[in-house]
């Protein structure tokens, strides 16, 4: 009898310990303070400042002067700004249209486990090891009209001055972007394709479906979430492309490849109109946020718990 009460008492004691312990072992707000303060100081404050600066005139020296809506009226009537938005949209769309089919195809192919694929894939992924700067510098040298590849393949490139025309420059930017980013999206699709249950293919094979039908009726529908993820990355990446434009075209010829992100840099750090640059930056932030929000809604990303999903 006594041993039973003792056991019961011990059990109650333990449960109480657990209950009070749970509260005690949960971290307080203090754990989040350093990161939040740091992030607020170097990301949120600048974000608020960009809005403030967009109502001022500032040449980079001295203090910003309040100018009210002057920057915004100027921006509204600025034909280059409107053009830059179109160019950003065009380059982003081109990026998605070019990279999506290639990376789906390569990713699905790469999802196989054959040994020769592993070797080829190791080469495919080398562009990922280069910074955007390095990629741009490399292609700038390779596409040089006098000493680069165009000089050796006149039948393909004509006079070789690819960056001399608008269509040529846009083509180069889209190509270099695809060269740089397709490997990443291939990786994403490889992960997605490997997650497709093999049972589906076996069932389809029994029903007599060929490779092409399997691809369109199993692989593509099963990759739906992966496609959305990859497109979010392409759109956000496309809208913020900067290094490539600065190094390859400097926005030229003329303003023919001046996309919004580059136009902002140009207005601020080359023309020293930091107020005007802030207004462009704010437009960029609003567009990027809107796009992200729409995409997040589409994917249900905000409700997702594990980052392992989709990789």
């Amino acid at each position: 009898m006594t041993s039973l009460t003792a056991t019961l008492a011990a059990a109650v004691e333990r449960r109480r310990a657990v209950r009070s312990g749970v509260g005690a072992t949960r971290p307080g707000l203090a754990w989040a303070v350093p990161a939040t303060l740091f992030f607020t100081l170097f990301a949120i404050v600048p974000l608020v400042l960009v809005a403030v600066l967009s109502f001022t005139g500032w040449n980079g020296i001295g203090s910003p002067q309040w100018t009210g809506l002057a920057n915004w009226t100027a921006l509204w009537h600025d034909p280059v700004m409107l053009k830059s938005l179109w160019l950003s949209a065009l380059l982003t769309t081109l990026g998605v249209v070019v990279q999506t089919p290639i990376s789906i195809l390569l990713g699905v192919w790469a999802a196989g486990h054959q040994r020769n694929r592993a070797v080829l894939l190791a080469i495919y992924f080398v562009p990922l090891l280069l910074s955007a700067t390095a990629v741009s510098v490399l292609w700038r040298a390779l596409l040089d009209p006098n000493f680069g590849i165009p000089s050796e393949a006149g039948w393909l490139f004509g006079d070789g001055n690819l960056l001399g025309t608008q269509s040529g420059s846009i083509g180069v930017l889209a190509f270099v972007g695809a060269w740089q980013w397709t490997p990443l999206h291939t990786l994403i699709y490889q992960g997605g394709a490997r997650a497709v249950p093999q049972v589906l293919y076996q069932a389809a094979a029994i029903d007599g479906a060929g490779t092409v039908r399997q691809f369109f009726h199993i692989t593509l529908p099963q990759l739906r979430n992966t496609i959305i993820t990859s497109m979010v990355l392409m759109v956000v990446g496309g809208l913020t492309t900067f290094d490539t434009v600065l190094i390859l075209t400097q926005g030229g010829p003329g303003t023919d490849t001046t996309i919004s992100a580059y136009y902002m840099y140009q207005q601020g750090f080359l023309s020293f109109d930091f107020g005007g640059a802030s207004a462009i930056a704010l437009v960029l932030v609003v567009i990027a946020t809107l796009v992200s929000l729409v995409m997040v809604r589409l994917t249900g990303y905000d409700k997702m718990n594990s980052t392992a999903e989709g990789l």
Binding site: I44, P46, A281
Partner: peptide
């Protein structure tokens, strides 16, 4: 706090270079 960091995902570094230069 978590929402602030999620919002941060949407801020492109390009957008804050002017105020960053200032700060």
């Amino acid at each position: 706090v978590f929402r602030i960091f999620l919002l941060g995902l949407a801020i492109p570094a390009q957008a804050v270079i002017v105020p960053m230069f200032y700060v």
